[in-house]
């Protein structure tokens, strides 16, 4: 058989083109583009759940998704945004590091035509992000404050561990709690210090507070990581039966300790619900929707030893 070299080259070229075309269309059908999930820190299991839930939902919706860790550092967050903008991401699900310091990053993305959906933490602007889905920290801590008074009584001494001082959540939680507890003059706050939402710092700070104030009755912590650290400090000091610990987040380890009667209460935020909804908003935006409410509060529920059976896995049990 005689083979025409011209025809052979033509067949090879057509086959190659067909393979390339098939690959490119299958890639297009497999992914609708890339969504970035930028999280303030992955050094806290609660934020890992938040980031992974957003990523998982984005993938379910047909996108490639990547989680970026800002390590609670606005400079790292800015670098993440530069990278995301340069790399052709279509939308950003964003958990900011700083209510004021993160605005510029959101604006940069907006100017580049990339919509940003804030989750859990807000930025102090209503015209930069496309929408902000935020736990109602204030209301959640009003409920915690009311339960605190029921459990501790109208007289006693307590300490407060604050989160990051540049984050609105820190102050919304603290203000919600104090809007109740400060109405009872017999409840004295003997120390109020930041432990940056960090478990190890929570342990250190409460150890130091206990040295000066060994007779406290309770500690209110602005998140569950600090509550875990505080509880460890109390166990080490042999005061875990004497001092009631209150947290905020609804982290699994704290919910388990509430069930065991070791921690008194926490506020259940719904990180999975928030993250999934934000990824869905990103998808809706990319499909043409534009009329999103700027701020969407997500209710926080009080978890106590009486109702702890209803909660687990960062939400309500189904």
């Amino acid at each position: 058989m005689k083979i025409n070299p011209f025809k052979l080259v033509l067949v090879v070229c057509l086959t190659a083109a067909a393979i390339l075309f098939t690959q490119s269309s299958s890639a297009q059908s497999a992914s609708k583009g890339k969504i970035a999930v930028v999280v303030s820190t992955l050094n806290n299991p609660w934020f890992v759940v938040l980031g992974e839930a957003a990523k998982a939902r984005a993938i379910e919706l047909g996108y490639d998704a990547t989680v970026f860790d800002s390590q609670n550092d606005t400079a790292k967050e800015a670098a993440n945004f530069e990278n995301i903008i340069a790399s052709g991401y279509k939308a950003i699900v964003f958990n900011p590091t700083d209510a004021n310091g993160s605005i510029a990053n959101v604006r940069k993305a907006k100017d580049a035509g990339i919509p940003v959906f804030c989750i859990d933490r807000e930025i102090n602007s209503t015209n930069a992000a496309t929408a902000q889905m935020l736990s109602d920290n204030y209301s959640g801590c009003v409920k915690l404050g009311e339960y605190f008074v029921e459990e501790v009584g109208e007289n006693g001494k307590y300490a407060e561990l604050l989160g990051l001082v540049g984050d609105n959540n820190t102050w919304n939680r603290s203000k919600g709690f104090h809007s109740v507890v400060d109405r009872y003059p017999g409840l004295k706050m003997v120390a109020q210090q930041s432990a940056d939402f960090d478990r190890a710092k929570g342990l250190e700070v409460l150890e130091s507070i206990l040295q000066k104030n060994p007779d406290i009755n309770a500690v209110f912590c602005g998140n569950d990581a600090m509550a875990m650290g505080a509880y460890q400090a109390l166990v080490a000091a042999g005061k875990d039966k004497q001092v009631k610990v209150f947290g905020f987040d609804g982290a699994d380890d704290v919910v388990k300790l509430i069930a065991e009667g070791k921690i008194t209460a926490t506020g259940m935020q719904f990180p999975k619900k928030m993250a999934r909804q934000a990824a869905e908003f990103a998808d809706q935006y990319l499909n043409g929707k534009r009329d999103f409410p700027q701020k969407i509060p997500v209710a926080v529920e009080l978890v106590t030893q009486e109702n702890v059976g209803k909660y687990g896995d960062y939400g309500r049990k189904k």
């Binding site: 807000e122 209503t126 700027q294 701020k295």
Partner: peptide, 19 residues
């Protein structure tokens, strides 16, 4: 409307005042 308040701390301070 919460969306009219850039800083949610201000919106929450309103609750305390109204109460």
């Amino acid at each position: 409307d919460a969306s009219a308040f850039p800083n949610s701390q201000h919106f929450n301070d309103l609750s305390t005042e109204l109460n």
